[in-house]
Design a protein around this nucleic acid. Sequence first.
DNA 1: GCGATCAGGT
DNA 2: CACACCTGATCGC
Length: 704
Amino acid sequence: MSSFGGRMREYPWLSLDRFDRENLRARAYFLSHCHKDHMKGLRAPSLKRRLECSLKVHLYCSPVTKELLLTSPKYKFWENRIVALEVETPTQISLLDEASGEKEDIVVTLLPAGHCPGSVMFLFQGPNGTVLYTGDFRLAKGEAARMELLHSGTRVKDIQSVYLDTTFCDPRFYQIPSREECLNGILELVRSWITLSRYHVVWLNCKAAYGYEYLFTNLSEELGVKVHVNKLDMFNNMPEILYHVTTDRHTQIHACRHPRDDDYLRGNRLPCGMTSRNGTPLRIISVKPSTMWFGERTRKTNIIVRTGESSYRACFSFHSSYSEIKDFLGYIRPVNVYPNVVPMGSTADEVVKILKPLCKSYSIKSEPKYKPLGTLKRSKTMDLTDTGEGSDDLFDTELTPVRHKIPKHQVETRLPETKASSENSDGNDSENRGSYKATTMPMSSQVDFIDCEESNGEDDDEEESEKNTVWAQSNADMPQWDVFFKRDIKTTDDSSENEDHPPSSIDAGRSQSPNLFSDSDSLSDSTHISSQNSSQSTHISEQGSQGLDSQADTVLITSQQTHGADFSFLNKGGSRVTASVSHMDNQTESHRWKPLDQNTPCTGNTDSDLKRKNQETNAEAGDTQTQNTLVDVNNEKLKTPNPELERDSQSSSDFEIPSTPEAELPRPDKLHCLYKKLAAVLHSSAFKKRKVPNYLSSDLNITC
DNA sequence: GCGATCAGGT
DNA sequence: CACACCTGATCGC
């Protein structure tokens, strides 16, 4: 839950994600995404009144957020006061102080946050420095390095302060399986169940909130089965999502909800009431997406855990893990950082202690390091004074010594403003707004951007089709090939070398027990698989596992499916297909969105390929790793594939002593070589795929 | 009757 | 574990 008060020290007359109290006097409002805890006061009578009196006050957000917000009648009164800003398009806005009449211009840029559809981070550039408010985000390692607009030329912009999503900023949450890994695990589970018969259905137990859409769209794409939901009108203008959901209950994948889901399920009914087809009772399993995390040195990362006869928990996270947060901040290296959230069981001080060392102030002493391949790396470092501020500058302190002003734009190029801000309402301020378009980045960045995908694709070929099962461990600790490319990151003094290997990095020290904790947790749950009876076991076993029993979590791994599925859907809601890469699309009109490339055929494959690739890579790289995709929590009999694995997990759970970190790492050399090869291949080919799932919703298109 | 807050549940 | 809600009870206007 966000505890951000809504205002930033540098620009206190702007309010973000909070609309009550002091925020009632803001000159402009910003909404990072459509989750209730970021909308406090947004429909309160007091704010409504303020709007009526202050006609120049607007709410700025992404086009998708605007669409989602206005779908609810409760927020309709905002209709003419919302300004949808295209993502990745620096836009100047003028803020008028009603009292003094003074006007101030700032440039704001929305950057994709990967948290839920429409979620963005706000980068502000103005007279009081450049500041970044992240809202809630989930960005994989290295993603900051790929954001062109966080850079000026080849280096990172000088950022005074970052207001950061610190939800999982605690070593306990060191790693969370990647989006691709989670998706892949869920995909295989769902696939294995629904292919048993048409009466086998899956209920996705999702909370009432935006953020699961990419799961729905990917399952639908891969399996050719739409997902049943209670409502879909909010997606009316988002064909990429709309196409994959349905209100027709006759489908094998459901994400519908009912206040008493449980009762329904107990009665072998889906929340929507479906109970059978042709009189044949349904075989329902429930899959509950929830966050799972693993300690720094934990090797096993189970993506699916069986929690009951026909229920599973699946890893899924809306927020970045501890290591992802550090990677992000370590790349940006602002002068100051302010947590937006105090993780439970932690304190603001602790969070600051973790984050401060990643700020510029600390780097002064250390030399900037070079990163091997990085092109984007920031070079600079130094900084002025400031730092002096003690440790706790966190929230309140003013500190910030004078920050040199930043020329309004460091935005490289200014393009003619295409955007018709016209869209809604008053043109008044629209006139002031100009939009600047950043120049395209130097190749390097582009390359970085794409690398990932490419690799994925490539692996496909090899495909070990034979048995789909692969034991790949998703270990965050492992160097990831993509990271290799973009490397970026942490300049943290210490970490420099192989930053990827967390062990050595900064937090190593604190890795100690916390990890254990989480590890053991997960372990404890696990148990074995039992129910053989049904097909369930079957499906499980099918995966190539054999039986193992015992407590250890067993794991079933998923396979890399050949995604034989059909992606024959390109047709999709008549959108026109633009084969653009995300950056390219921004340019157009602000209010309506054009369908984007996601529709292109290749898109669908991308993700899965990715994962597959990753897994393979890992597998090859070090067999040491294993990724357990499926775990049975109940004890019954399990079928387990690989005894060793089991052993592994056990050990990690129980002891997981902070042993020599390096010990468990895969051999770097090998990886290195492998990566190099991959890099070579990649560079030689062109990439076309999008890197991230539709998820970075910011890219979603809206149609008129 | 509505809103804000808190407790409790998922 | 936590998230992002939802419901219901209570209190104040």
